[in-house]
Design a protein around this nucleic acid. Structure first.
Length: 478
RNA sequence: CGGGGUGUAGCGCAGUUGGUAGCGCGCUUGGUUUGGGACCAAGAUGCCGCAGGUUCAAGUCCUGUCACUCCGACCA
């Protein structure tokens, strides 16, 4: 079957209208439903199952790097939120407030957490006294609320699910190490579990987190050339420690401020998965987080022995992969389309003809290839195929990103790329806020990050022509 | 927060100069089918977003309001 042939009519083509395509995919794949609460989405079982797999993958990585899970309250007293000046200024415009308990007005308003720095800091001030209490390596899984004006499922919703790691360390060096360690965890996770290649780098002063000393990011590129900030890791230095008075006594009996970090990844990454791997037939899920890795479709299931054989295959596979059988009375063709839209990596067909030959048909979601294998080989071939699909998705995504990554030293050229062929643009920058703002003003592109592997593509700033300090990845972003 | 669009059956929509609501899909039941969204038959489903107003009469006209959605400025 020709790969570019549209199999599912209900889904708008990507190149026709990318935004509509995204909305169609999310709806047709049963990932979310709109809710009766403005800007909030209902994550349906299939969408939530993806999130659960992401959670499992990240959580085990956090545990391996020594972190413990905790849970903080969802409310923050106004006074607590206001302790760190930059932080409160950054979040104030999008905070939701609780003013009443029942019918009683509260003496102090409570903010619904937009992030939990202040709560962690307040707690740390209470529990950290000695160098023996450090480091504190905490993480929490929760939802946060940010009163956004424009919302889109997964990419930006009023309430969203995430994890936020918060750590406290004895020294600045240890905090910096932690910041980079967790950024690397995110990057590794994206590539090995989600098949999404990312650019690792540092945010500019303008783009960094409110209250942070420095912010690091992984940036992914979507099919339409827009960038998606997919995970961030912040080094707070001792700024929060000073605001919240988090001190410990060191080995030489001196009082010291702790150095802190925080890092987070959210359900937004699901939007990334959709927009990196999806195609005109719908969702394409990376096998390692797909809720269903193999869908078994019996053909002519009313015929003697077909369902029995299909169930047997399903049982045999269920020990090694996430497998499901669809024995509903829909037609096979309907089922093929359904699981294509849902992005199930492998379809396994079994019908009378196959049983006769002792084989099954495997069809890859990523490239449509049909493979006939002997029933005896399913336990070895199916996992192999899933790995091969993962590799192919990562390879394709990397190729697409590289194809949409441009280098330029000329401002007019820069403008042309942003407006005509959006993607990552590598260009030099003098380090001045004025230039960053001018570029945004004139082109719509923002600085995504200063990559760790810096190259000098020129010695002059793309904007002002003065001496360049950094290579920056620029791009339009979600 | 500005600009546009849409609210009628579960979903997608039609509804003429105002006259008391329809189509497709889906759903239910029965039967025939089954290798790329099958077919036939019989059913069920409506506070026409909400609130006012005009009128003998409002899905339709007027006013207001709310929600959703898309496009721009701020944000994971």
């Amino acid at each position: 079957m020709a790969q570019d042939k549209k199999l599912v009519e209900e889904i708008t083509s990507m190149n026709e209208d990318f935004t509509q395509w995204y909305t169609d995919v999310i709806k047709k794949a049963d990932l979310v439903d709109y809710s009766s609460v403005r800007g909030c989405m209902i994550i349906r079982p299939y969408g939530y199952a993806i999130w659960e797999n992401i959670q499992k993958g990240l959580d085990s990585r956090f545990k391996e790097t020594g972190h413990e899970n905790v849970y903080m309250p969802m409310f923050i007293p106004e006074g607590l939120l206001q302790k760190e000046k930059d932080h409160v200024e950054g979040f104030a415009p999008e905070v939701a407030w609780v003013t009443h308990g029942g019918s009683e007005q509260l003496a102090e308003r409570l903010c619904v957490r937009p992030t939990s720095e202040t709560l962690f800091c307040d707690h740390y001030a209470n529990v950290i006294h000695s160098w023996r209490d450090l480091p504190k390596l905490y993480n929490q899984w929760c939802s946060v609320v940010r009163w956004e004006k424009t919302t889109r499922p997964f990419l930006r919703t009023t309430e969203f699910l995430w994890q936020e790691g918060h750590t406290a360390h004895a020294t600045a060096e240890q905090a910096q190490e932690e910041t980079i360690r967790m950024l690397n965890v995110y990057a590794e996770f994206c590539e090995n579990m989600l098949a999404i290649p990312v650019i690792k780098g540092q945010k500019t002063q303008k783009e960094k987190f409110a209250g942070a000393e420095s912010t690091y990011t992984i940036e992914a590129l979507m099919h339409n050339g827009l960038a998606l900030q997919s995970g961030t890791s912040h080094n707070f230095g001792d700024g929060f420690a000073k605001a919240f008075d988090i001190q410990y006594t060191d080995k030489s009996n001196q009082l010291q401020y702790v150095h802190q970090t925080s890092w987070g990844m959210s359900t937004r990454i699901i939007g990334g998965i959709i927009m990196v791997h999806g195609d005109n037939s719908g969702l394409v899920l990376p096998p390692r987080i797909a809720p269903v890795q193999v869908i078994v479709i019996p053909v002519s299931q009313h015929k003697e022995g077909v369902l029995e054989k299909a169930s047997e295959i399903c049982d045999r596979l269920s020990d090694i992969v996430r497998v499901k059988m669809d024995d509903s009375d829909k037609s096979p063709g309907w089922k093929f389309s359904e699981y294509e839209m849902k992005g199930v990596p492998v379809r396994l067909e079994i019908g009378p003809k196959d049983i006769e030959k002792g084989q099954v048909v495997l069809v890859r979601r990523d490239n449509g290839e049909k493979i006939f294998i002997s029933i005896d080989e399913i336990e070895t071939k199916v996992p192999e195929l899933l790995n091969s699909i993962h590799d192919n998705l990562l390879r394709k995504a990397t190729a697409l990103r590289d194809e949409k990554t441009y280098t330029t030293v000329d401002f007019a050229d820069f403008e042309k790329i942003v407006s005509q062929t959006p993607g990552f643009i590598k260009a030099m920058w003098c380090g001045e806020l004025a230039c960053e703002e001018a570029i945004k003003e004139k082109t719509g592109a923002t600085s995504r990050c200063m990559p760790f592997d810096e190259e000098a593509v020129s010695d002059k700033c793309i904007c002002c022509g003065k001496e360049a300090k950094h290579l920056v990845y620029w791009g339009k972003a979600y």
